[in-house]
């Protein structure tokens, strides 16, 4: 039997013909990186190749690394294998990785969402024979509202809290979700106060989006200024002493997990906004459909359930492969 073009090894997804790994989780020589979240872009590789918009992100996170940037659709070859990056619509600079050898095409999805968020390059379906897909929200229980509706809910929540003199603290992952919210609120929105972790990442990405004005919360920030304001903070700030300054406040989380009433209560936030940078059930199915792939490999998420559905209902050659990307795991705060 001939060797598959991409294999799942203990270091990561590997193309042996080109000696290239995609989003490897252990140090390797050549790493193609789909996007800047920590579980996909790890430290210690010799050489990083990624979309150029992801370069400032991973440089910010990983420091001085040997990295080069590519355009969408730009190709490069190694030992006859052709590689290219295509928009995944997950966060700024997020890509799918296309791999072609002698007419056979594989695509690694990275993390992706099919809805356009107006900030990052929208997801582009890429025809392929084999599709390696994430399925973080691969259950029919997940169905996203249009972004506009969620944003108007968030604005209404902020206005309600403001009217009674309360601070609105919105928890969002510092890379991706925070900038999506800031862009969604738009440059005309009133100043949004930010936790240092959010502000640092937003500074890196500011040239790439039209964000609501932000103000970093520091020791010097007077607590009066925070009264009634909208504050964006990473989930890890919840329950920490950092929050003391914000009293009185209402809390909310923006995440796909907020679909479940239990998840909101578990995180002990007052309000949950269902907003995800991953695809919902229909999004995953339509993306897979658009690839035309006959072989689908499901990685992180509800992979067993999702691949069974693809096999039994969609008639695809679908299976699960274990990776170290965070899907179902404890990733409720870090996955998105």
């Amino acid at each position: 039997m001939k060797k598959p073009l991409l294999e799942f090894t203990d270091r990561g997804i590997y193309c042996s013909r080109a000696n290239v790994y995609i989003d490897p989780w252990k140090p390797v020589e050549n790493a193609l990186i789909s996007h800047g979240h920590a579980d996909h872009s790890r430290a210690g590789h010799k050489k990083y190749i990624t979309h150029h918009r992801n370069l400032p992100i991973i440089r910010h996170r990983l420091g001085a690394i040997d990295a080069s940037g590519m355009e969408w659709g730009e190709t490069f070859s190694r030992n006859g294998v052709v590689f290219s990056f295509h928009p995944a619509g997950h966060i700024i600079g997020s890509s799918q990785v296309r791999v072609e050898y002698r007419g056979e095409v594989w695509v690694f999805s990275g993390d992706y969402k099919t809805e356009s968020d107006g900030l990052c390059e929208p997801f582009e379906p890429v025809r392929c024979d084999s599709f390696i897909t994430e399925c973080t929200f691969g259950l029919p229980a997940f169905s996203w509202q249009p972004q506009e509706e969620v944003l108007s809910d968030i604005k209404a929540w902020h206005a309600t809290n403001q009217a009674v003199g309360k601070t609105s603290v919105l928890f969002a992952y510092s890379l991706g979700k925070a900038q999506r919210l800031l862009a969604g609120l738009g440059p005309d929105y009133e100043p949004v106060y930010t936790h240092g972790a959010i502000e640092n990442m937003t500074e890196v990405l500011r040239p790439l989006g039209a964000f609501a004005p932000t103000r970093r919360i520091t020791r010097e920030t007077p607590s009066d200024a925070l009264k009634g304001a909208l504050v964006i903070a990473p989930p890890s700030a919840h329950g920490s002493t950092w929050m003391r300054k914000l009293v009185p406040y209402e809390t909310a989380a923006a995440s796909g997990w907020m679909t479940f009433r239990g998840a909101r209560r578990r995180r002990a936030v007052d309000r949950g906004f269902v907003l995800s940078d991953h695809s919902d059930w229909e999004g995953l199915l339509s993306a897979i459909d658009a690839t035309g792939a006959t072989c689908v490999i499901c990685t992180h998420g509800y992979s067993d359930i999702f691949s069974r559905y693809l096999r039994e209902v969609k008639g695809l050659d679908a299976r699960t492969e274990a990776t170290q990307y965070e899907g179902e795991g404890n990733g409720e705060s870090t996955v998105e």
């Binding site: 229980a141 997940f142 509800y302």
Partner: peptide, 24 residues
């Protein structure tokens, strides 16, 4: 429009029958 086994899997994950039905 989903098979029964998928409903049951979803129910186990959502953890509440009414919530599962309303979601799917």
């Amino acid at each position: 429009g989903i098979p029964m086994w998928l409903f049951e899997e979803s129910y186990h994950i959502v953890g509440d029958l009414a919530e599962t039905i309303a979601l799917i």
